[in-house]
Design a protein around this nucleic acid. Structure first.
Lengths: 164, 164
DNA sequence: AGCGTATAGTTTGGCATCAAACTAAATGCC
DNA sequence: GGCATTTAGTTTGATGCCAAACTATACGCT
């Protein structure tokens, strides 16, 4: 029963005040979904702070990397690779084009789709962003430990790919 | 170099079309932050679908559990335990009160803070929700494997708690 | 008691996201 | 060629979240 205390789960002073003591997480403590969310958001917050230092939005990072690694990628392919809806991508692409970090050309063979490419300026920004991300990753690595890192990543990928 | 092909990272047909082939994730493939996000969102989506079946919002779940396990908890304590800003909690609490799942009373000793408690109706809903969450967890467990589950959870908790 | 500071919760404004409706172009079928 | 269907991207509307400003209460210091 996770060590209850006869008051329904929480220490109380004699006037019925909830004690400031530790929270009882109940089943949340050992459920993966909850802890996955907490870890992801903590990591994201940490990365956000770092991103601010270089004046970039964390969301731009994966997007720019994927375009750089897959020259000529379309917006739909990109949104899928990035795990976001294609409609979310519209303003992001607009912003990146406006700032001259990527270029977008209509395809000749199919005039509905665009092909995205990183410009020279974009590559420069990406280098800075990558350095920043590497620092973040080193930080995470320390928490995980080299020993478990590979297995940990494998499990994450498995969840992302295979959950019903 | 992750097996590039001399065209900047991506296979192309003879007319410069980006091939429909697999995406090159570059460094994202082995970075924890990216995979953590992808896994979390996949898991959340899966849980969302399940939640719909029982007609509940996934966000209500942790909230209700925490109130049930910590009777008399304040909104600020709750928002911290749940990893959300206290302002996000206002509409959630309103909704839960409106639907009669929790009750909220001003504290006598400090008339700024509320004390939250789950009602009988709320406990009933929570039971249903918990069953639903358990099915979700069983699913995740299968992907992770009993062998690694404990270690995996530990790492998630460590990231949530200790990332600068 | 009185005043400045801290705290609990709400309000407001902005952002990222998704889903569904929409537009334009391509494809398939007759 | 013509019409229905599919596909790429955009627009629109709703949601959930955060951060900052705000209100009301409490606390601490003198």
């Amino acid at each position: 029963m996770h060590g209850t205390n006869g008051t329904g789960g929480r220490l109380r002073g004699r006037n019925g005040l909830a004690a400031a003591g530790p929270i009882n997480f109940g089943p949340l403590a050992y459920w993966v979904g909850f802890n996955l969310r907490m870890a992801q958001e903590a990591a994201f917050q940490a990365f956000s702070r770092r991103s601010q230092d270089i004046g970039e939005s964390p969301g731009r990072f994966a997007t720019l990397t994927l375009i750089a690694r897959n020259p000529g990628i379309s917006q739909t392919e990109l949104s899928q690779a990035n795990g976001r809806d294609k409609s979310s991508l519209t303003p992001v692409v607009e912003d990146l084009v406006r700032r001259g970090l990527i270029e977008r050309k209509r395809m000749d063979s199919d005039r509905r789709t665009y092909r995205l490419n990183v410009t020279a300026a974009g590559k420069k920004v990406l280098t800075t962003m990558t350095r920043c991300a590497r620092r973040h990753e080193r930080n995470l690595d320390q928490l995980i430990g080299v020993r478990d890192r590979k297995r940990f990543l494998q499990i994450l990928k498995r969840i992302a790919a295979e959950i019903e």
